[in-house]
Amino acid sequence: MLEEIQLQQVLPQEIEKRSFEIITEELGNVELDPLQAPIIKRAIHTSADFDYLKNLTFSELAVEQFHTAIKNGACIVTDTQMAKSGINKKELAKYGGEVYCFMSDDDVAEIAKKQGSTRAVASMEKACMLDKPLIFAIGNAPTALVRLYELIDEGKLHPCGIIGVPVGFVNVVEAKELIMRTPVPYIVARGRKGGSNIAAAICNALLYELRDMEK
């Protein structure tokens, strides 16, 4: 049986390049915005899900605004350690930025317990205390997006951008739609799909795009 399976002969260092070639081939004649294309393709590459071609939604001039924020030293706040681990911190550090995730912090757990809220909500509130330009990359908790919406509406938080791609069934669609009502630049995966891996992939796509533009 194994003799009938034809494997592609690809060097390890060429696998990612070949994957993106396959994605481009399968997209065929689909025309993508040149600044959005690397982000959409990396989301597809991460998930093998071409639905991101339709699902990823960008506010006007979002990519340019995210790039500007990163170049000005914006830090990234995530809602999972997985997303934090997946973001290329070395590339972000070139511009003076850091990645934060407060979900495992003892004070966040304590505040969430006292408030009867989720850790994601408490971690967004803790992020308000950072005296730095912030990009939020949310891939797991819709409650984080809802609290971000409230904090923005209350004038307590002024993010440089929000990547809203939580995955799930309860309030996921609604939370994403709330973010799209704010004046904040956003990249949102409409619908139920998303995840921490997608949040990290979008962050990395923005970073790699900047790197390539500066070569």
Rank of each mutant, 00 (worst) to 15 (best):
L92V: 02
L145K: 04
Y100C: 01
V10I: 15
C128D: 04
F102K: 14
I87Y: 14
D79Y: 11
V172P: 01
F50I: 03
M103K: 04
A205M: 05
K54P: 00
N55W: 03
F66L: 07
G96P: 06
G195E: 02
M129E: 14
Q9I: 09
L11A: 15
S59A: 01
L27Q: 11
A201C: 07
S85D: 13
C203P: 03
R42G: 03
E125Q: 15
A127W: 06
C128R: 15
F20K: 05
I70Y: 12
V188S: 03
Q115W: 13
A175Q: 07
L148G: 04
L145Y: 07
M82N: 06
C160M: 13
P185T: 08
V146Y: 08
A141N: 04
I162Y: 07
L92Y: 10
F102Q: 11
L130K: 12
L27A: 13
L207Q: 01
L206Y: 06
I163D: 01
P166F: 11
S104H: 14
G195P: 04
P159E: 03
D49F: 03
H45I: 01
A199I: 03
L2I: 12
I5A: 05
F169H: 06
P133S: 04
I40P: 02
H67C: 05
I87D: 06
I152E: 06
E64I: 12
L35A: 10
R181E: 07
N88I: 00
G97N: 02
R190A: 04
A43E: 04
K215L: 13
I23D: 01
C75I: 06
G191K: 09
M103S: 03
L56C: 01
E209P: 05
N29H: 13
E110C: 01
M124L: 10
L148C: 12
N88K: 10
S123K: 13
F66H: 03
V108D: 04
Y208R: 14
A109W: 06
A141R: 08
A205P: 00
I202P: 02
K89D: 10
Q13A: 12
A37W: 11
K156M: 12
G195T: 06
T78M: 10
P12R: 07
A69W: 14
C160S: 12
